[in-house]
Computed example of a mutant assay.
Amino acid sequence: MANIAALLKSEIARVARKEVRAEIESLKKASAQQRGAIAQLKREVAHLQKDLRLTRTRAGAAVALSPAAPAAHQPSKRRFSAARLAAHRAKLGLSAAAYGQLVGMSGATIYNWEQGKSRPDGQQLSRLAALRAMPRSSLVALANP
């Protein structure tokens, strides 16, 4: 009886290993394809970075990125002044939270900008500039629906 149990146990282990091996093979193939895709993407990024460096050196300055590129990567020529931000918000008579809603940020973030504890990035500077360009009546209407 012990021989039958041992044989059954070894046969179950063999079949289980065979099933696991079949599953692992498909995963190995998928992994190899993904590694190949990642390698291709890395080559493309390296090529694009090389082209960008060449373009920058030809232009002698930073290159204006295409409009389809994310705004966070575009160089910003805007300057930021914490005092001007605070003055603009005070002129509108808005709380930091209300002003933050217009910019798409929290009131605490606006407060930190005004206190000089942090600075907005390029995309946020663009939003602030757009707010400054809008008439006061539209901003107050947007802030107080």
Rank of each mutant, 00 (worst) to 15 (best):
Ile110Tyr: 03
Arg84Lys: 11
Phe80Val: 08
Met105Tyr: 14
Ala32Met: 15
Thr109Pro: 05
Gln115Pro: 02
Ile24Gln: 13
Ala72Asp: 14
Gln115Leu: 06
Leu48Gln: 13
Gly93Gln: 00
His88Tyr: 04
Gln124Tyr: 10
Ser137Leu: 04
Arg21Asn: 11
Leu92Ser: 03
Asp121Glu: 13
Ala82Lys: 02
Ala87Cys: 01
Arg58Val: 09
Ala97Phe: 12
Pro70Ser: 11
Asp121Ala: 13
Ala22Glu: 09
Arg58Ile: 12
Leu139Trp: 01
Leu139Thr: 04
His47Arg: 09
Asp51Gln: 12
Ser31Gln: 11
Ala96Ser: 08
Ala87Tyr: 01
Glu23Gly: 14
Ala133Trp: 03
Lys50Glu: 10
Gly116Ala: 02
Val103Thr: 03
Ala87His: 01
Ala59Cys: 11
Arg127His: 09
Ser138Gly: 09
Ala82Trp: 03
Tyr111Leu: 11
Leu125Trp: 02
Leu85Ser: 00
Ser118Asp: 05
Arg136Glu: 08
Gln74Trp: 13
Leu139Ala: 05
Gly122Phe: 06
Gly107Ala: 01
Met105Cys: 15
Asp121Lys: 14
Ala37Thr: 15
Gln33Ala: 15
Gly104Ser: 01
Gln40Arg: 14
Ala39Trp: 04
Ser95Asn: 02
Ala30Ser: 13
Leu54Met: 12
Arg136Tyr: 03
Ile110Cys: 06
Arg89Leu: 02
Phe80Asp: 10
Ser118Ala: 10
Leu54Val: 10
Arg79Tyr: 14
Gln124Leu: 12
Ser81Asp: 06
Tyr111Val: 09
Leu41Met: 10
Thr57Ile: 08
Gln124Phe: 15
Leu41Asn: 08
Ser118Glu: 02
Leu102Arg: 01
Ser26Arg: 09
Ala86Cys: 04
Arg79Asn: 09
Leu27Lys: 11
Ile38Arg: 08
Gln124Thr: 14
Ser76Tyr: 04
Glu44Phe: 15
Ser126Ala: 14
Ala62Pro: 15
Lys29Phe: 09
Lys29Gly: 09
Ala64Ser: 12
Arg53Glu: 12
Arg79Pro: 15
Ser81Val: 04
Ala90Gln: 03
Gln124Cys: 15
Val45Gln: 12
Trp113Tyr: 14
Gly116Phe: 00
Leu52Asn: 08
